[in-house]
């Protein structure tokens, strides 16, 4: 924190960490990291690490939140105090409340909530280490944890960030999967989530300035990267049960 603005974030087609604009960071997915939960997953995007756990469907308290015809998907997004350089004050603030809300809305779109009227499906998204793009990593983890818990879903959720970085001349370039420097100093960042098999957009948030052309270019890059992440998710889910069967 408090570092000076870097002279460039991208130079000669290479980003600060050596990636090409369309590359995502090394991704790792671990399933079932919290055995006590009904479903859990850990998603690692470079230095960003997020754990999601799912409990339910279970009885919904407080009762006034009950929806008679379907289940309510509740998400609590939280960052660990040690997940960032300066100690993060524990508890949900303005930012956490907002992220919890948008994640819940994105997940409600894919979970077949009509199957469990009046119940609650609780998702806890915990950021263990933050290096930008935590909400999208959290959404990936949440979707995997839901599938792990055996909750009926129309599709998985694949999520990633993209944004506008600048080179040494101050020229903007679209890049995929922002890391911390690019998020802090970049010219725009977008959180994006899709249901890949259905082709629906579930989350789209932007901070900064991006022209329509740039957005379209970034989205094309993100869609391509999303397919890679989707394949990884499928592999991770299957690997849980595959050894020995068939």
């Amino acid at each position: 924190m408090g570092d000076e603005k870097p002279k460039f974030l991208i130079k000669g087609g290479k980003r600060l960490d050596g990636r090409k604009p369309e590359d995502v960071r090394p991704i790792q997915i671990k399933m079932g990291v919290v055995p006590n939960a009904d479903g859990s997953a850990e998603v690692i995007f470079g230095k960003t690490r997020v754990i999601a756990t799912v409990y339910g469907p279970r009885e919904l308290h407080p009762r006034h939140q009950v929806i008679n015809e379907r289940a309510r998907v509740r998400v609590r997004y939280d960052m660990m105090t040690f997940s960032v350089e300066d100690r993060k004050r524990p508890g949900p603030g303005r930012r956490e409340t907002e992220i919890s809300k948008v994640l819940a809305e994105a997940l409600t779109r894919v979970v077949i909530t009509e199957k469990y009227p009046t119940r609650a499906i609780d998702v806890f998204v915990t950021v263990v280490q933050a290096d930008a793009s935590t909400r999208v990593a959290g959404l990936n983890a949440a979707s995997l944890a839901l599938a792990d818990a055996g909750i009926p879903m129309r599709d998985l959720v694949v999520s990633l960030s993209f944004g506008k970085s600048y080179d040494e001349k101050g020229q903007g370039h679209m890049v995929v999967d922002l890391e911390k420097e690019e998020d802090n100093w970049g010219m725009g960042d977008i959180a994006y989530a899709v249901a890949p098999a259905l082709g629906e957009v579930l989350l789209l948030q932007m901070d900064g300035d991006v022209t329509l052309e740039e957005f379209k270019k970034g989205k094309t890059m993100a869609d391509k990267a999303a397919l890679e992440i989707y394949e990884m998710q499928k592999r991770a889910l299957k690997a849980r049960y595959e050894e020995g069967s068939k």
Binding site: D38, G150, I151, M153, R154, D155, Y241
Partner: peptide, 26 residues
């Protein structure tokens, strides 16, 4: 027809179901 859970495909006549590998009792 799409799968809604993680599980094993099972054909029975004209019906396709997916037997879940995890989940609470319904």
């Amino acid at each position: 027809i799409r799968a809604s859970v993680l599980g094993l495909v099972n054909f029975k006549g004209r019906a396709i179901k997916v037997i879940p590998l995890n989940g609470k009792y319904l």
